[in-house]
């Protein structure tokens, strides 16, 4: 019986290896959880997260006045989605504005489609947006800019990945390489 122990241990290790996750470049959230549905406003009326059930949703909080971080991130996501080829339609990028006062659904739609025709921008009331942001631990805060810019908004610059089961456990920090995001998304899609 004692002689069988090493074999048993070896088999256990093998089993663990089969089940182990591939390496992810993004940040893994320790407690994967099903995310709550939400409904905001697009150009054609209400848009819910559940409208994209079965897709990987990449959720971002930004605003169209943002000249540097937001267009940078969205351009990267546009590149990554195009790179996914046949799997591109299994991924949906949503940006929720942190500036509902200035970002109308029409303006958001035009802004988002510039980066990829499938991208969707969502607006809503201050209270609706604040509630969703809180759920993802997203912080945003207005501060005075210059006479020319008007107010500016500090905001969390992170992309939240919601998998095809509607669970959140992975996010992409600002500045992550495009190829790393692509590799992570391919692994998320492989899980189904």
């Amino acid at each position: 019986m004692k002689q069988l122990l090493p074999l048993f241990a070896f088999l256990l290790l093998l089993l663990a290896a089969c089940q182990s996750e591939p390496k992810y470049y993004g940040t893994l959230w320790p407690n994967p959880q099903e995310v709550a549905d939400f409904t905001l406003t697009g150009t054609a009326g209400p848009v819910s997260l559940s409208d994209y059930a079965g897709k990987v949703v990449l959720l971002y909080f930004g605003y169209t006045f943002c000249p540097d971080v937001c267009p940078g991130t969205l351009a990267d996501l546009g590149y990554v989605v195009r790179e996914l080829g046949r799997d591109a339609d299994k991924v949906q990028v949503l940006m929720i504005t942190v500036d509902p006062e200035r970002d109308t659904p029409e303006q958001l739609a035009e802004y988002m489609s510039h980066f990829h025709p499938s991208f969707v921008g969502l607006s809503g009331t201050e209270a609706e947006i604040a509630a969703i942001a809180a759920e993802y631990g997203v912080f945003y805060q207005r501060h005075e800019g210059t006479a020319a810019t008007g107010y500016l908004v500090d905001h969390t610059a992170r992309v939240f990945v919601i998998d095809q089961q509607g669970k959140y456990w992975l996010s992409f920090p600002f500045g992550m390489m495009r190829e790393q995001m692509k590799a992570d998304l391919q692994n998320v899609l492989r899980r189904g």
């Binding site: 943002c66 945003y140 800019g145 500016l152 500090d154 969390t156 920090p173 600002f174």
Partner: peptide
């Protein structure tokens, strides 16, 4: 800022 909150200023 803390926790990857990005901001912009002149």
């Amino acid at each position: 800022r803390e926790n990857d909150v990005m901001g912009m200023r002149q």
